[in-house]
Structures are given as structure tokens and as C-alpha cells.
Lab assay of single mutants.
Amino acid sequence: MDVFMKGLSKAKEGVVAAAEKTKQGVAEAAGKTKEGVLYVGSKTKEGVVHGVATVAEKTKEQVTNVGGAVVTGVTAVAQKTVEGAGSIAAATGFVKKDQLGKNEEGAPQEGILEDMPVDPDNEAYEMPSEEGYQDYEPEA
């Protein structure tokens, strides 16, 4: 019985440690998101679009440190934060509304985080759909 109880105690310690790591990862992701939003706020009209992409990228980098179902929630929060940063930029006159959601080359930025393969159960990952990809044929 002692062996059984000791095993359960060790398992509990492992769960607590994993929860603490997840909590730490979420806190880091939130900190990076805040950094990115402050970065966007300090940019001029020309830099705002690039700044919004930076927020998304920093958040995406930190999301990889967070495991399990938390990833889905962090990704949703990050996307809403990026959308909010863009709205703030438009409201303050840093950028025109028609410039939001495009990178410096004018290509749409939507789907940055949505296409990231995420499995809350950590069982399997699927690649994003290939609808947006084109076949590449090298020139002879």
C-alpha cells in the first residue's frame, strides 16, 4: 500500500510541476504579447503594419512553449490582441483601416495563427491545408 501511495504522490508532483510550467509559459506569452502591443503603439504610420505582424510573430513563438489545451486559448487571445492593436492603430490615425491585415508588401496577414497546427491532446499534428499553395516548377 505504501508503494501505491508513494507512486500516487510522485504522479501528483509531476502534474503540479507540469501545471506550473504551463502557467509560466502562458505568463511569458502574455508578456511578449504586451511587449508587441507597446511596440505597435510606438510606431509611426509606416511601421504600424509591420508592428502588428511582430506582435503576432512574438506571440506565436511563445505559444510553442505552452502545451496542451492552453495553446488553443493563448492563440485565440493573441489573435484578438493583434486585431485590437490594429483597431487602436486605425482609431489613433497611425494607419488607414484599409491597410490593416496586410503586410508591407500588401499581402493579407489573416491566418497567421489560424494555420498553425495545434492539437490540445498532444496526440497528432496535421499540416495546414494546401489550398493556398501553388506547385513550383523550376525553369529549365
Rank of each mutant, 00 (worst) to 15 (best):
Gly47Thr: 15
Ile112Met: 06
Val16Glu: 04
Val77Glu: 02
Val26Cys: 12
Gly41Trp: 08
Glu130Arg: 05
Ala140Arg: 12
Tyr133Gln: 07
Ala124Ile: 02
Gly25Phe: 14
Leu8His: 00
Lys6Ile: 11
Glu20Thr: 05
Asp2Pro: 01
Glu35Ser: 06
Ala124Ser: 08
Gln79Gly: 05
Gly86Thr: 10
Tyr39Ala: 02
Val52Ser: 02
Gly41Asp: 00
Ala11Lys: 00
Gly47Val: 11
Lys10Ser: 05
Ala78Thr: 09
Gln134Glu: 05
Gly106Tyr: 11
Gly7Ala: 04
Ala85Met: 14
Gln62Ile: 08
Thr75Ala: 15
Leu100Met: 07
Thr33Cys: 03
Ile88Met: 09
Val63Ala: 04
Thr75Trp: 15
Glu20Leu: 09
Ala69Val: 10
Glu57Lys: 08
Ala124Gln: 05
Ala124Gly: 09
Val55Phe: 14
Lys43Tyr: 12
Gly73Val: 14
Ala19Pro: 00
Lys60Asn: 02
Glu130Ile: 06
Gly86Ala: 07
Lys96His: 08
Gly47Cys: 07
Glu110Tyr: 12
Glu105Thr: 12
Ser9Trp: 15
Lys58Asp: 01
Glu104Ala: 06
Glu57Tyr: 11
Thr92Val: 13
Val74Phe: 14
Asn103Ile: 04
Thr64Asn: 10
Glu83Val: 10
Ala90Pro: 03
Val3Tyr: 04
Thr59Val: 12
Val3Phe: 02
Glu114Lys: 11
Glu114Asp: 15
Gln134Asp: 09
Glu20Gly: 02
Ser129Ala: 06
Ala19Gly: 02
Tyr136Asn: 03
Ser9Ile: 12
Ala19Asp: 00
Thr44Asn: 01
Thr22Glu: 00
Pro108Asp: 10
Val118Met: 09
Gln134Leu: 10
Val16Gly: 03
Lys12Cys: 13
Gly51Lys: 05
Ala85Gly: 06
Thr64Leu: 09
Lys23Val: 05
Val82Cys: 06
Asp115Ile: 05
Pro120Glu: 08
Pro108Asn: 13
Lys58Arg: 09
Val15Cys: 06
Ala56Arg: 08
Pro128Val: 04
Asp98Ser: 14
Glu83Ser: 10
Gly93Trp: 10
Leu8Val: 04
Glu61Ile: 05
Thr44Ala: 07
Ala19Leu: 15
Asp135Ala: 04
Val37Cys: 08
Ala30Tyr: 15
Glu123Cys: 14
Thr72Phe: 03
Gly51Thr: 11
Glu61Arg: 07
Ile112Val: 11
Ile112Ala: 03
Ala19Trp: 14
Gly67Tyr: 11
Ser87Arg: 04
Tyr125Leu: 08
Gly93Pro: 05
Ala11Asn: 00
Lys23Thr: 04
Glu35Gln: 04
Thr59Phe: 14
Glu126Tyr: 04
Val70Asn: 01
Gly31Pro: 00
Lys96Asp: 07
Gly36Ala: 09
Val71Asp: 01
